[in-house]
């Protein structure tokens, strides 16, 4: 149980998928102008990352590993991610068509989010079992959502701050992202995570 907790804390804070591994930076910069969109994107990505981790683990365990097809891993995982996004879209539509109109806007962006593929590949590289794969994927995506919301909050404040014209907009956003990454480096002292 303690191992699981350490794995999760490590994935959320210490080896944060955005600020320590630098994956998913496109959506990190693009969808964080408002907290609401950051939450919507974060939740949708959390769902897709976790569901695709289950599919990827099953494919690796029952197809790629027994038939020695590891060289097909990347392309297979991309297919699983696309299927997971389609599954998410279909299930949200089934849960509530009204809700789909509200939340479906973020789903296309997830297909091309490298954080999703990155988490699955990291899982295979670390040779996690099923439960650890699932928990690692969930925790990584919680870390992603946390950083998205934090950064969106900072950017909402920055929009009201008196920033010089030369630095306004993306430049100050990049500087803030760098400072946030530095702050997250402080967490490396609390745990060694799974690695």
């Amino acid at each position: 149980m303690q191992d699981m907790l350490l794995l999760m804390v490590g994935a959320i804070l210490v080896n944060n998928i955005v600020l320590a591994r630098f994956l998913g930076l496109c959506s990190f910069m693009g969808v964080t102008t408002k907290i609401d969109t950051a939450i919507g994107m974060g939740m949708a990505t959390t769902f897709v990352i976790t569901v695709s981790a289950v599919g990827d683990w099953a494919l690796e365990k029952f197809l790629l590993e027994p038939y020695d097809l590891a060289y097909l891993r990347t392309i297979t995982f991309i297919l699983v991610i696309a299927a997971a996004v389609q599954f998410t879209e279909a299930s949200v539509k089934k849960i509530s068509p009204v809700m789909f109109r509200m939340l479906g806007v973020y789903l296309p962006l997830i297909t091309t989010n490298c954080a999703v593929l990155g988490v699955s590949l990291l899982n295979m590289e670390s040779k996690h079992g099923f439960l650890n794969s699932l928990l690692f994927a969930f925790a990584s995506s919680v870390g992603y959502s946390l950083v998205m919301v934090l950064f969106a909050g900072l950017r909402e404040r920055l929009a009201l701050a008196d920033v010089s014209r030369l630095m306004a907009g993306p430049p100050i956003g990049f500087i803030t992202a760098g400072l946030l990454a530095l702050a997250f480096m402080g967490f490396s002292g609390i745990s060694t995570g799974s690695h």
Binding site: D36, A44, T46, T50, F130, L131
Partner: peptide, 28 residues
């Protein structure tokens, strides 16, 4: 409404995920 978006996200994504994680941990 802003809070409706949050509630919709929680219902659509977080509820299925949490039940899935609990079931997987229980199975293991």
């Amino acid at each position: 409404y802003e809070d409706s978006l949050l509630q919709a996200s929680l219902a659509a994504y977080l509820v299925p995920l949490v039940v899935m994680l609990v079931a997987a941990v229980a199975g293991q």
